[in-house]
Each structure stands twice: as structure tokens, then as C-alpha cells.
Design a protein around this nucleic acid. Structure first.
Lengths: 174, 174
DNA sequence: TTGCATTGGTTTCATTTGAAACTATTATAG
DNA sequence: CTATAATAGTTTCAAATGAAACCAATGCAA
């Protein structure tokens, strides 16, 4: 992997992306968020991976099962915002490593019923504090008020992004 | 791909991720940012892809060349926060499609000198307004003040993320 | 019932990705 | 000057990814 040294946005944080100014990638929000997220994800991937032999998808599955089990694969997919292929694969590996137990739903034999095994629960409970620690470190520089604001803004952006994704999809289908 | 319908954080936006409360993935900042970024990236990928036959890495290369050419591959890598493998491949495709011209640096024959071709420039100039439009749509719900705050907070997070990545890397090497 | 559409989930295949190995060129130590 | 190290960039190989095809079980309409 490349050394993490991210190009900094120019200090002049002008409001609007001036209409005819040259396009500045390093000030472009989608780009910045992508870089931020990738850096973050790598840090987490490293932690989950080295300490527990987990990928991020696997950890996500564990996280939701830790809270809501039993869940079907589809329910896991919804709660983790992953597609069913990823869930299927993550679950397969977690079963093979005895982290997750799978039974079939009694009333609908298509559905599975997934839950953490005893081992899985122990891992989960060991990981959670570390994850929280990293999140805390990430947010270390922000005041409580700023955190709240960030939370709110991210929610707004998520809404808009979904909108955007849908409309772009629509246009494509026409 | 899975339908984009993101699980919403519970309305109670409590400040700190309570120590012994169950771990709530949907309130976990790294997760939320990842979901946001992926949704956004897919929207962009679709636009670049359908309208111009470009991937995101390819567009990033075009964007920095549009502003700073000539650049070497390494310089492109720095400015796009991509690793050299990705840059190499993106550039290769852009050359094949006559979007980018490559010559070799006169004073150092290892280095390339990359710049947009005439065609590439036209594409670039056509894409920029669309990219700005999407960004604007994304930010539509935010006041100018909120945008400034967002900008500031994202910068802080990026700094922390890099720190984090580094320290985690260090620990791993010890 | 019996067919047909739907849903839950897995597998296949092609593409993308990144780490490590590799080639070519330049820099530097002896 | 060599020889060794370092740098620029490409290629190789294995793993991750996602769309589409697929299999199995259920729902539903005739």
C-alpha cells in the first residue's frame, strides 16, 4: 500500500466551488470523503484483521448479530448495508471458523437463523471496546457540539446521496 | 447491486457511545461514513461510467492533469491519493483511449510526463460542471455555514485518521 | 391441486484491487 | 569508473467484489 500522506486542501476554504475556477480535486467533497473513508477503513481492517483475523464485512455481521440475533441473511444485509453476496460470503467464513452458528428457520426453510456462537460472543465483546476506542481517537479533536453537528450533517448527506443514487439510476433506466 | 436503503440511526442521538450499552453499528461513525461514501461513489461511478466510459480512478487522473499537467505518474499518485499501481492502470487505459498523452521526461528517462490530449481536455471540461452539479446536489440541504463546518470537521477527521493509520501500522511492526 | 412468480441464499464469472516481484534508469558509495 | 542502492513505473498473482445465473422453498392465482 502507498504511504498515507494525503494532499491537503488549500487553506483558503472559499465557500462555493467557483464556477470558472480550475477544478480542484483536493477540495471536492466526494473525493475528500472517499480518501477519509479509505484511510479509516484501512486502519480498522488492520485492527480487525491482525488481532482477530476478520475482514470488515465479517465484523459487521458479528456486530449486528451481537445485538439482534437471530437474524436471517437478508436481515443481516439490511442492517449492515451490504449486498447479499457479501453477506453470504462473510457468513460462510464465520461459520467455518465457528464464530457464527446457523440453523434453518422453523417456519420457512429458505431462511437461515444466524447467531453468534459462544466463541463469537467472546470475540464480539473483546472487539467492541477496541472499536469504540478507535472511534474515540478519530473524534478526539472535536468538541461534543461538533460531534453532534457532524452526526447531523452526515445524516443529511446520506439522505442526499441516496436520493442522488436513485435519480441517477432512474435516468439511466429511461 | 443491492437496493440503496440505508438503515437509519435511531432518533435518539446520544452524545457518547455509552460504555456498556449494546454496540450499535448504525451509530458507529466509521460505518456511517463508509456507507455514505460508498453510496456517493456509486452515484459518481455511474455518471462517469455511463456518460464518459470512465472509472473513478481514471477521472481522478484526468482531474489533476487538467489542472497541473505535465505530471509524472508519481505526482499523479500523490495528488489523487491513489497508489502507483492504480495510477499506472488508469493511465494505461487513458492513453489507449487517447485521453492522455505520455512523453518521457527529458532529464530523467524513468519518469513520464503526462498531460491531457485535446480530446481529454474537452472531456475534462465537459465533466467538471457535471461533477460540480452532483456535489451541489449533495450539499443542497446544508446552509453555507454548515458547509464550512463540514469542511473543517472533515479536515480534522482526515488528520486523525492518518494518525490512527500510522500508529496502528507502528504497533503492527513492533 | 398445479403451474408461475417471488423470495432466500449460493455459485459462477468477469472485473478490480493491492502487495510483491520485476524491469529500467538514475544516484551514490567505495 | 564500478557496484550497490534507490527510484519510476509495470506486471504478476492471489484475494475481494458484484452482477447475473442459479437452486431451493414458499406464495399465489387459476
Amino acid at each position: 500500500m502507498q504511504p498515507v500522506s494525503v494532499p491537503r486542501p488549500s487553506p483558503s476554504a472559499d465557500d462555493m466551488p467557483g464556477e470558472d475556477e480550475p477544478f480542484a480535486l483536493e477540495r471536492f467533497l466526494p473525493y475528500r470523503l472517499s480518501v477519509l473513508t479509505n484511510t479509516m477503513s484501512r486502519a480498522f481492517a488492520r485492527m480487525y484483521g491482525e488481532r482477530f483475523g476478520l475482514s470488515i464485512p465479517e465484523w459487521r455481521v458479528m456486530a449486528v448479530l451481537g445485538r439482534f440475533a437471530p437474524l436471517s441473511a437478508n436481515e443481516v444485509a439490511e442492517r449492515t448495508a451490504m449486498d447479499k453476496v457479501r453477506v453470504s460470503r462473510a457468513v460462510a467464513r464465520l461459520i467455518k471458523t465457528n464464530v457464527v452458528d446457523r440453523t434453518t428457520d422453523a417456519t420457512d426453510r429458505r431462511r437461515s437463523a444466524l447467531r453468534l456462537s459462544r466463541t463469537g460472543r467472546r470475540m464480539h465483546d473483546a472487539i467492541v471496546p477496541m472499536a469504540r476506542e478507535i472511534e474515540a481517537a478519530l473524534l478526539a479533536g472535536l468538541t461534543p457540539a461538533e460531534r453532534e453537528t457532524l452526526d447531523r450533517l452526515v445524516t443529511k448527506l446520506m439522505d442526499q446521496a441516496v436520493q442522488l443514487y436513485r435519480t441517477k439510476a432512474k435516468k439511466a433506466e429511461d
